[in-house]
Design a protein around this nucleic acid. Sequence first.
DNA 1: GGACTTTAGCAACGCTGTTGCGTTAGTTGT
DNA 2: ACAACTAACGCAACAGCGTTGCTAAAGTCC
Lengths: 359, 359
Amino acid sequence: MHLAFLRDYHEALVLTLARTRPTIERGTVAEVTGLTPQAVSKVIARLLEEGLIAPAGVRRAAMGKPAAVYQLVPGSRWAIGAHVTRRALRLALTDLAGTVRASATTALPPDFTPDQLLSELSAGVTALLAPPDSGGSPRHLAGVGIGMIGPLDQATGTVRDAHRLRHWHDIPLADLATERLGLPVHVDKDVTAAVTAEAWRRGAGFRDAALIMVESGVGAGLWLGGTAHRGAHTNAGEFGHTVVQLDGPPCVCGRRGCLEAVHDRAGDPAAAAAVLGVGVVNLLQTLDLEHIVLAGADLLEHGDVYRRTVEHAVRTQVPRADWLSVEVTLAGLGTDTIAAGAAMQVLNARYGVPDPAGR
Amino acid sequence: MHLAFLRDYHEALVLTLARTRPTIERGTVAEVTGLTPQAVSKVIARLLEEGLIAPAGVRRAAMGKPAAVYQLVPGSRWAIGAHVTRRALRLALTDLAGTVRASATTALPPDFTPDQLLSELSAGVTALLAPPDSGGSPRHLAGVGIGMIGPLDQATGTVRDAHRLRHWHDIPLADLATERLGLPVHVDKDVTAAVTAEAWRRGAGFRDAALIMVESGVGAGLWLGGTAHRGAHTNAGEFGHTVVQLDGPPCVCGRRGCLEAVHDRAGDPAAAAAVLGVGVVNLLQTLDLEHIVLAGADLLEHGDVYRRTVEHAVRTQVPRADWLSVEVTLAGLGTDTIAAGAAMQVLNARYGVPDPAGR
DNA sequence: GGACTTTAGCAACGCTGTTGCGTTAGTTGT
DNA sequence: ACAACTAACGCAACAGCGTTGCTAAAGTCC
């Protein structure tokens, strides 16, 4: 029965509005979504039933019956995200609104095995769920998201061949973690998780965007047409290995003149940012994006320099910049972006607007 | 009532199969789409009613009742596509299968006005519909598609500022043409129309792809996640104006080292193709595509050289090329690609798999 | 010719959003 | 005070989608 898709779709539509706006009411939701007021009533009733939204008083207009106002209950659902790097595991507990409520970092052994990661992950998750001081423990945990370095296969949750980690070849991480934790697990590339963090928090206006990450490499998380773009083999976003200088300096990937190689050799942050700016303009020319989000530990160390330099490049180097509105911002969650984004991927899979094909 | 979306969605799903495969039958359609056989029966009944498919005998298996076989009726629906360049108007009459049944080219006056184009278009459309020899004239014309050089706004069908055409500033071309022709009109960028031609003819397996066009400039039409990617301002695909050589030769766009500038200065076709190959590899690194289609009059003049050179670049320059399967082909419709693709955009809007958001 | 296998179709059903209309909770005017 | 008006709300009947359960049809095999 595919009627369930319609229900979930409209429910997610209204919930997205509730997340994005301070409050919602029947009339405005009906206008924005195109649903009839009666249909919105039914959707709101279901969302109230699930505890996702709650009444928030009434709005008195000049005349007529006051409208009932509702708002999101951020604490009604939770998710935990994990950011796996070569040396550490960072966890973030996130509520339905995408706010980070707690986070923790633990070291990982050098050249750690899948089993070692799972142990740390399991311990970290239980620690986050039983906070030492806070009284009310989260009830509805939607699942756990894991953001990793590639390459991997997002559809099956398999790590193909994690770069510079010996024990990671064709590891079905999602299945292993689901079994170990007893929770739904979503495995994805770090950059895709990161861009999901921005998308989940900004809502429907965030349709075409890239999150540029500089952190032991240069990558990009792509959000195109309102959903994550992973490519045919979950390998999209290898933005640092695009050539910007034919016959330029050699890169670790074997080619010459890659953006990453030129960027890393620039010397000072301003020069590096200018190189990145060229890459960002290339991306804009190719994809016509509306939002550029800058992230990654190495970048955020000189966040302001990068933001100003990239914004200047966008303003001056993109032809017809007058009507090609582009917004350049720093990642709102800073160094928590990947871990929190991984959590939000779980929320997005369960409470986001679904795709009819089920992807 | 949004139930209509479900109906159209499933109908389009089955029709896509009918287009892509030689024949369809209830059982296999049910398997592929996930619908129940009973639901497929209802969908097939509707498609028969509309004349889009027709019975094509039965398939006798080793045992049991033979299965009823159906196939597409290509001539049941038609569309006309127009390719507008600075000097000529090329038209193509296309059937539901995406086969070009007739085409024509007429010259356009230098620096033509919108009204001059509409006159030529109107005359050309009526000429194509009343063929001198063929007896049966097409009945069901779904509409007319127009593929143009940008920049334009696809959502409203407005030409913002056609490059090097003086009379084309903020022209609501779709509205004007709809009024003049009395038919639905779809206006889009030439490269997007071109990639739609490939997508319509190849079906569901064509999910992440780029059509690279070399024809008075270098551009790319993007097909991502199963739909056209136009970007936030219908300006995606300005692939020729991505920098591949910092401080390289000056480009007409004002920057230096653009792919197009380097490509045009390469000298012989093989060297030019090698430059294009670097750009294609950049695109693959960024977007992880599965299909690269090469098109455009200037490229197809040396089609084989380009195809071999680009394929070689993809095989040798993409890291981990072993599992990143990429197919490099020449445009199946040759120089008709843009005009025919514009026609298929109309078919796709009416008979393609719809988007719940209505985009 | 009967048993078996596979496909097809009829009819009742559950669930979605829609439609029509009456109810409720306010403000405004007398 | 009380009626008139306004705007939001909700109940109930409804149309149309895919689903389910079952029966009929058209073949092959023994």
